[in-house]
Design a protein around this nucleic acid. Structure first.
Lengths: 305, 305
DNA sequence: CCTCACTGTTTACTTTAACTCAACAGTTAT
DNA sequence: ATAACTGTTGAGTTAAAGTAAACAGTGAGG
């Protein structure tokens, strides 16, 4: 097929949502990408992309073409991986999606160490709090914290995900120390927008479930921004230990109601199920599990939970 | 993937069993194919093909690579087909395997008429009595007469396949006209090697099954060669009507025991099962069914069966 | 409303990859 | 021994791929 060479270009344009980001990914100029797509459309005799506004979208023909082109792209990648696997040394490209905060705080420091150990692996890290689709986004791995939706993806557990209720000493001095869970109703309870239970916080004590309805003046979709608000004494919030650990250790944040536990969740790696796991994916997972500490994550060391 | 463009070249080399036939298929020079394969092996860092003798064979890595490369190739072709299907007009390449005799006698005259009607379709007809594997041989369609082995392939019936017992007038004059089936034991019964029941011929009369053990001096794996032997008075043989029809009509062959019927079989087109049938495949099947005459094939016209 | 920063397209030109041709060595069949 | 094929390689040619620059268009921010 004379169109074969254009397939990775087309797939990149769709996956990255434009010619310019696709060009950056492919290491080509914008005009090269533009010309390859125009040539492909000419060869097929059909328009694949609408480009009437700043946003791209697929035509009907483009959707059909993309569906199969993606499979071709994946199969070509599998072909290379199959050969690389025989050679034993992990190599090739990994495209990884991770939530922003976890990515910035823990993936970003980890990955350079991983790449030093595996110099033949290349990583494209995409930090985004939107739960991007693994397949159509072209990801090998998606890092996900908390409960997983049903899907055909395979989950591999990387670490535990604990959360604790926190406030700053200044806040507690000025607003009073809540003595019982119900006291939280009188406090400014700050929330993480993506949470499933923004308005009703649940705890577990002595195998008994406790809930409290809360409200507050601030809700944000970024856990580091939430941490900052708590640190500045704006209110009380539930914070994952992977965000709050250092401030708790430093005494900047006080853990409230430590005997009331929040559900212990997991940080997982989601993978497309395959006949075999490519060596590079396996290497990444093994490294991450050891790096994070699958029993007690390194960010919880020195904290009583 | 920088290797994407080489995939169709590699797949063609494997499917056609050599650089030279692959070059002919691809419309490239031998050296271009040789260089593309060498470059691909260099990019992957591994040998894909043994070429120590006249025959090519895949290395272990090559087998793994081919498996996925074939999928990539098929997916790319599906991508083009999906787009072409939207456009309505059948186009693209069809690779068809057919047995030698049926191909020479019936496919070869039919196909030019088909291509005149569908000028955007290209056909690569491979005539071979070996039942080539559809998938790894890269065929869209395989024409098969008679009983089908179990497989994941889809069968589409093209025409009926009748066979009749024949001898030439000269043979009958010199060796006598067999009056009963058992008389065949005294005759030189010629066989088609690929037949399942070379030594015991079965018939059906008035819903009763009859069998006779036979033997003969000649067995051949080509039904036109068998026809020739019968025409030359060497002996008696079962011949498919698609081979013998004209000679029967012309009086060169006499149908023996017409009331004893052989099982009515089918001429089928075998297809890889797909989510949808490409327009070009559908067009080919429809044309063939109409051309052959699915109730009474054109080669049986004027014959009493 | 203006400005800036981005998008994708197109032209002219450069670079690179792909390709052909020819010669060669090797193998197999006649 | 010869002919007909195979695949490889070097030298040269051609075509495709790519870049840089200029342009038009769009959306966000001031």
């Amino acid at each position: 097929m004379d169109t074969m060479g254009a397939i990775p270009v087309f797939v990149a344009v769709v996956q990255y949502g434009g010619f310019s980001p696709a060009a950056r990914f492919l290491g080509l100029s914008k005009s090269a990408v533009s010309k390859r797509i125009s040539q492909l459309e000419q060869q097929l005799g059909v328009k694949l992309l609408h480009r009437t506004t700043r946003k791209l979208s697929l035509t009907e023909a483009g959707e059909h073409y993309f569906e199969h082109a993606l499979k071709a792209n994946l199969a070509a990648r599998d072909a290379e991986d199959a050969v690389a696997q025989l050679q034993g040394e992990p190599q090739g490209r990994l495209r990884i999606n991770t939530p922003m905060s976890f990515g910035r705080l823990h993936m970003a420091p980890m990955i350079p160490e991983f790449l030093k150990q595996y110099p033949k692996i290349r990583i494209d890290l995409v930090m985004d709090d939107k739960r991007l689709d693994l397949v159509s986004g072209g990801f090998d791995i998606a890092i996900r914290g908390g409960a997983l939706p049903d899907s055909s993806l395979v989950a591999r557990r990387l670490a535990t995900l604990n959360s604790v209720l926190c406030a700053s000493p200044d806040y507690l001095n000025s607003q009073g120390y809540p003595q019982q869970l119900d006291d939280l109703l009188q406090h400014n309870c700050l929330s993480f927008s993506y949470s499933n239970d923004v308005k009703e916080w649940s705890f577990s004590k002595d195998n008994q479930r406790h809930s409290v309805v809360v409200s507050g003046s601030y809700q944000v979709n970024n856990s580091e921004a939430l941490l900052e608000a708590v640190r500045q004494g704006l209110g009380i919030a539930r914070l994952p230990t992977f965000v709050a650990g250092p401030d708790i250790r430093a005494g900047n944040l006080i853990v409230l109601f430590p005997e009331y536990k929040m559900p212990v969740l997991d940080i997982n790696a989601l993978l497309i199920e395959r006949q075999y796991m490519p060596a590079k994916v396996r290497a990444f997972l093994d490294f991450a599990i050891e790096y994070f500490g699958s029993e007690t994550p390194y960010w919880e060391e020195g904290i009583d939970i």
